[in-house]
């Protein structure tokens, strides 16, 4: 089945995302996929899709699209006003969009990224096993623009088990993220780790799907030599010299040459992906190892 959703407005940034690519890290292909994976999964579950189906990741709202045939959609993530044909619709719930009607997402009052799952999934051509747009490496479909027509797959045989999901509100001005120190906390002074766990850091406007550049107290190193480049994960707090940490998100580079002082646990990386510039972050440690 083709002809699904015609994009009319794409806002600051709208991309197709699924759960990303695996198995190509050896040739430098990162995972990518939804920045807030739990919101994508929730949208797909509510729509009765496979959790890994591709959907639209909308950054700071401003998205509008026309249904080219009757569609069922679910909007999750950053809570924004949703309308269908000008009438209000609920987030985190099944929404029917008649053929020809326009689905519109306003600006979220909190958070950064909303997800629009369509029952049947967005079925653009996969690249290296995924439909995700990787903005660092330029893989996958181009960011959406007015006129883009997104194909939607056949409606799955099963019906969604629930039609609505309660979701905890997103942080308004301070977000606490759990980290595990390491893998390279021994490259920093004992005080640096203490600082990271005690002082607030602010999300700067130099933030995107690759990472969130943070502003806050400097984290001093114990050693000045160069770290041979090594594999990175989403959630890594990488600290360049004479600089503040960067929190890596979905499109982070596969390897990096600066030491990682701590890693945010996977569930909290999804929360970090909703952090707007200006939001205060605090880090709390779990499973700290001393050596």
């Amino acid at each position: 089945m083709s002809g699904g959703l015609e994009v009319l407005e794409a806002g600051p940034l709208s991309t197709v995302q699924d759960l990303g690519r695996s198995g190509f890290a050896g040739i430098g292909v990162g995972m990518s996929g939804a920045a807030d994976r739990s919101s994508l999964r929730l949208a797909n579950r509510l729509a009765g899709n496979d959790e890994a189906a591709a959907a639209v990741e909308v950054t700071l709202g401003g998205f509008a699209a026309r249904a080219l045939r009757p569609l069922t959609v679910v909007v999750t993530g950053a809570p924004c006003p949703v309308t269908v044909g000008g009438r209000g619709a609920a987030p985190n719930a099944l929404v029917h969009v008649p053929a020809g009607a326009v689905l519109r997402l306003g600006t979220p009052e909190r958070g950064l990224r909303s997800y629009v799952a369509v029952r049947g999934g967005v079925t653009v051509a996969p690249v290296l096993g995924s439909r995700a747009t990787d903005l660092l490496s330029g893989l996958g479909p181009e960011p959406l623009c007015p006129g883009t027509v997104l194909p939607v797959g056949p409606v799955p045989a099963r019906w969604p088990s629930v039609g609505f999901a309660p979701v905890a509100p997103l942080a308004a001005d301070e977000l606490v993220l759990t980290v595990v120190p390491g893998p390279r906390h021994d490259w920093f002074t004992e005080r640096a780790l203490g600082t990271l766990l005690a002082e607030p850091y602010t999300v700067t406007s130099e933030s995107n799907r690759i990472g969130i550049r943070l502003d806050g107290p400097a984290l001093d190193r114990r050693r000045d030599d160069e770290l041979p480049s090594e594999g990175m994960v989403a959630g890594a707090l990488q600290v360049p010299p004479a600089s503040r940490p960067t929190l890596f998100l979905a499109d982070h580079p596969v390897t990096g040459g600066y030491p990682v002082i701590a890693v945010v646990v996977a569930a909290d990386v999804d929360k970090a992906a909703q952090a707007r510039p200006g939001l205060r972050l605090r880090f709390t440690a779990r499973g700290r190892r001393t050596r």
Partner: peptide
């Protein structure tokens, strides 16, 4: 890398070889 690529342990989603390290990416 060669050994784990041939027989990856359960929960390992990808392998990232580098100069002195091998990163095992995990499905949490």
């Amino acid at each position: 890398h060669a050994a784990l690529e041939a027989d990856p342990p359960a929960g390992v989603t990808d392998l990232v070889p580098a100069a002195r390290t091998l990163l095992l990416r995990l499905d949490p």
